[in-house]
């Protein structure tokens, strides 16, 4: 592990150098919001962003639509892969936690070559949060700062950035950074303070229990009235799924060329809140009720996924996107979990 310090000017030049060699995706302004885009110049980069519209981990590793295969009608199938090298620059610690979780899901049990080829072609430069978004609660989920899973971690300490490497890939990358010097003890002290402050600042909603208690809490909450109460005003619009960095459900669809000889098979984002998500060809729909779908998402985040992966971090990383995206304002996981704690207690 190396920790270097680099002035913001020099960092800009470093990024411009990277852009010449490979694709670099970074946070850019989109109106008064932010979104990860491919950079043409370091001047577009907004590392002071609060949160992006789409979670970068999903956008780049499990894109909204992706071709899996091509095929010949009546003949064989060929895999389609995208393994262009790129740098993902500026992902926040909470989205990084989601990325690490998704890496596990797509590499475990059945190794998903489509996801993993893209993933292995990427270099991850994470970045500590400078401006907290209006609904972020990463601190409650243990994802306000990053411990692992990055190649490089950036921290804005005022006039310069600290760059910590987390892998040989990261080491190699920052070798190219001209003007980077070893970080001094005082710089590290500054960074420590920022991390400490971020625990407080990334806490717009506060979960009234440790995030590792959620599976236990949910064990006794299955028939609680909150599901029906909240779901009464649920549109089943799936916005809470679509914006979530840890949602990974997908649908698979075929299309065919006009001469009906060649087909493509694509996967696209799907969401468990949507009507029809569990409907089988015979028309039977297994999770038909709005409240059942509403509950399923909160159980996945708080219980099913962390238990499956055996992790302490729940499958909600506290990015706050669903809170802002849900028009009837019912999606906030903290509100629901706190309500359950109020009613069911902590033991």
């Amino acid at each position: 592990m190396t920790i270097k310090k680099i002035s913001k000017d020099a960092f800009g030049k470093f990024v411009d150098g990277l852009i010449k060699q490979q694709k670099v995706m970074g946070p850019c302004a989109k109106g008064d919001r932010f979104e990860f885009e491919q950079l043409d110049s370091s001047s577009q980069l907004r590392l002071d962003y609060d949160v992006t519209l789409r979670p970068p981990n999903r956008k780049y590793f499990l894109p909204p639509v992706e071709t899996l295969l091509t095929c010949e009608v009546g003949g064989g199938y060929q895999s389609v892969y995208d393994d262009t090298e790129f740098v993902l620059l500026g992902i926040h610690p909470y989205d990084l936690a989601a990325l690490n979780q998704m890496d596990q899901i797509f590499s475990r049990d059945n190794y998903d070559t489509h996801y993993m080829k893209r993933r292995l072609a990427a270099t991850i430069i994470a970045c500590d949060v400078v401006t907290p978004s209006k609904d972020v609660f990463a601190a409650s989920m243990g994802t306000a700062t990053a411990e692992a899973g990055f190649d490089v971690l950036l921290t804005d300490i005022g006039d310069s950035y600290l760059m910590e490497t987390g892998s040989p890939k990261g080491e190699k990358l920052i070798e190219k950074a001209q003007g980077a010097v070893d970080a001094a003890a005082g710089d590290l002290e500054k960074r420590k303070n920022i991390w400490k402050e971020n625990q407080g600042r990334l806490s717009k909603h506060k979960l009234n229990c440790s995030s590792s208690y959620l599976p236990k809490l949910l064990e006794k909450a299955y028939s609680h009235p909150v599901w029906e109460e909240k779901a009464k005003t649920c549109f089943s619009c799936g916005s809470c799924n679509q914006v979530c960095p840890t949602c990974y459900c997908f649908n698979v669809q075929d299309d065919v060329s006009w001469d009906f000889t060649k087909g493509t098979r694509q996967r696209a984002w799907d969401g468990c809140l949507l009507d029809g998500f569990t409907k089988v060809a015979g028309e039977h729909e297994f999770r038909k009720k709005r409240e059942d779908r509403f509950r399923h998402r909160l159980y996945r985040k708080g219980k099913y996924v962390p238990e499956k992966l055996g992790t302490k971090t729940p499958a909600c990383v506290g990015c706050g996107r669903c809170v802002s995206a849900c028009l009837p304002d019912i999606a906030n996981p903290v509100n629901i979990y706190n309500r359950l704690i109020d009613d069911l207690g902590l033991e």
Binding site: G31, L53, F235, W269
Partner: peptide
């Protein structure tokens, strides 16, 4: 053909649009 059962928000969010509301 698969014709969506779900609402426009799904595609809107997948495109990364800010919400007009």
């Amino acid at each position: 053909p698969d014709i969506p059962l779900y609402p426009v928000c799904v595609e809107c969010k997948a495109k990364g649009n800010p919400c007009l509301w």
